[in-house]
Each structure stands twice: as structure tokens, then as C-alpha cells.
């Protein structure tokens, strides 16, 4: 099966005093090639752990995951990752960052230059190739991170709150860019976010995860990403069906957060 297959994954952490925490318990799902999945959940629900397992940075204590029929047991250029921040190489210019993947793979220089230019064009940074990354704003840095990931041509892109550190306006624009990139490249994308609106807007599918043990509490199939590719995202976010689901998901997450706070209060 092309795409991602996650089969009964569990992740248990040992903590001092002999206790263990179940960051993930029996998580299973499939994603078709080209799907856009978003994941929401309160802190501690294991969503970052899940992403790290899919990237191959962590090995689950139970179950297995495979991508395009190959078991995941380490990082692979097939599965790219975009981090919240801090993952750009500040000792390299913008274009060196973008060309990093092809350069490490030993591709010829003209091919690297072509790819770099192409992806810088796509994310709207063609004039910034020779700048240092620390000279760019947060939003531009994330666009560099996207271009760097895409220049390496992964089939699956994992995003760990890629827009989390951006201001509201930039964030909204970047959501549009993500939808555009998804449409144009046909990549499979999994995106973690704390913003319910963002999760609804971008995901064809949405997982709401719950903590203790970390699991998928509820799954939605959503029409908004498809609409957003062509339509106006502000209008979509103002639609009544969007608002309805938004409030439902918000209430669910608030409930979980309160439960966490409550149990902490008891201690």
C-alpha cells in the first residue's frame, strides 16, 4: 500500500520511582499518498512523540509503522520534517540551507542551483538567496525551512507546529502557502498544531488526540482544505459548518485540559 501505515503503536517511557508513562497506546491509522492530516491535542497527548516515531527519531515500544511498504526504523530522506523553529543552519546562507539535501546527496552543482532557485521562487524568496538566515523574519525563516524540505523531494512531510511561533497575520498567509504547496506537489503531509482553526483549515483529516494514555480520541473528515485551495480562507473560516466543528473540537480539548489541571490539583 502506498502511503503511511501505522499499526498498533505504543510508546512507554520509564520515569523515576519505577513508574511508566504511556505517551502513546495502541495507535493505528492509515494515510493515503497525497493526504493532508492534521493532529490536535492538549500538551502531553503524545502528538510530538507520534511525529518523532514517524520521522524515525524514536523507536516505539510496541507496534510498527511503515511508509510506502517500508518499515520505519530510522530517519530517511523520504520523510522530511519541518520544525517549529531553530532548525535552520545559521552558518549557511538561505540558498545553502535550501540546497543542503541535494548537496549532501552529492548531486551535481547545476542541479542543486536549479532546485534551490525553483523552491526559493515557489516560497517567494528568490531575492533572498544570498542573505544570512538570521537576517530574515520568523515567517521568512519558516518559508526557508519549507523550501529546504521540499528541495530534498520527500514523499511525506512531517510538520511539528511549523507556524507556532508566527504572528497571526503571517500565520494565516503561511496556511495559504501550505495549501498551495500541498496542491501543487501532491505530497502527503502530517501537521501538528495547537490552533484548532489551523487544524480545520488545513486538514482533509483531523485527529484529536487525548492524553493518559496518548491516543486518537476522535477523527474528522473535513472539506475545508479542498475549498481553501481555491477559495478565500477568511470566508471559509466564517462558514457556519466550520464554526460548528471548531466549537465542538475546542470544547473537547478544553475538557481534556481541565481534566489534566484537575488531576494535578489533587496531587
Amino acid at each position: 500500500m502506498q502511503g503511511l501505515n501505522v499499526n498498533n503503536i505504543s510508546m512507554e517511557y520509564q520515569v523515576p520511582k519505577g513508574d511508566s508513562v504511556e505517551a502513546l497506546k495502541n495507535v493505528s491509522f492509515d494515510i493515503k499518498a497525497g493526504e493532508f492530516l492534521t493532529i490536535l491535542g492538549p500538551s502531553g497527548c503524545g502528538k510530538t512523540t507520534l511525529l518523532d516515531i514517524l520521522a524515525g527519531f524514536l523507536e516505539p515500544t510496541g507496534g510498527e509503522a511503515s511508509f510506502n511498504n517500508q518499515p520505519i526504523n530510522g530517519p530517511s530522506p523520504q520523510r522530511g520534517m519541518v520544525f517549529q523553529q531553530g532548525a535552520l543552519f545559521e552558518w549557511m546562507t538561505v540558498e545553502k540551507n535550501v540546497g543542503f539535501g541535494p548537496r549532501m546527496a552529492g548531486k551535481p552543482a547545476d542541479e542543486i542551483a536549479k532546485k534551490t532557485q525553483h523552491w526559493l521562487d515557489v516560497v517567494g524568496l528568490s531575492d533572498f538567496g544570498t542573505k544570512a538566515v538570521y537576517e530574515l523574519s520568523g515567517g521568512m525563516q519558516q518559508r526557508v525551512a519549507l523550501a529546504r524540505c521540499l528541495a530534498n523531494d520527500p514523499d511525506l512531510i512531517l510538520m511539528d507546529e511549523p507556524l507556532g511561533a508566527l504572528d497571526a497575520l503571517t500565520r494565516e498567509k503561511m496556511q495559504g502557502l501550505l495549501l498551495k504547496l500541498w496542491k501543487e506537489t501532491g505530497k502527503t503531509i502530517i501537521l501538528i498544531t495547537h490552533s484548532v482553526e489551523e487544524a480545520l483549515m488545513l486538514g482533509e483529516r483531523l485527529f484529536v488526540m487525548a492524553p493518559r494514555p496518548g491516543r486518537i480520541e476522535k477523527q474528522y473528515h473535513l472539506p475545508f482544505a479542498a475549498q481553501g485551495v481555491t477559495g478565500n480562507s477568511r470566508e471559509i473560516k466564517a462558514q457556519s459548518d466550520f464554526i460548528e466543528i471548531r466549537e465542538e473540537v475546542l470544547a473537547m480539548i478544553w475538557g481534556m485540559e481541565e481534566e489534566i489541571m484537575g488531576s494535578k490539583g489533587e496531587i
Binding site: 520521522a55 524515525g56 527519531f57 530517519p75 530517511s76 530522506p77 520523510r79 522530511g80 520534517m81 520544525f83 531553530g86 532548525a87 535552520l88 543552519f89 552558518w91 543542503f100 539535501g101 541535494p102 549532501m104 546527496a105 529546504r148 524540505c149 530534498n152 520527500p154
Partner: peptide
């Protein structure tokens, strides 16, 4: 920053390349 190392691994870098292109700089 571990994110940088992780990013490099997903970008085709070998251990040696990570040493010279990420950790050393």
C-alpha cells in the same frame, strides 16, 4: 540544537556530514 541534527538526517546527511556541516559549525 537536536532539531538541527534531526533535520540534517532527514536531508540525506551521513554521520560524517552531520559532524562537519552541523556540529562543527
Amino acid at each position: 540544537n537536536l532539531s538541527k541534527v534531526h533535520a540534517a538526517y532527514t536531508l540525506n546527511a551521513s554521520k560524517r556530514q552531520i559532524l562537519f556541516h552541523v556540529i562543527l559549525p
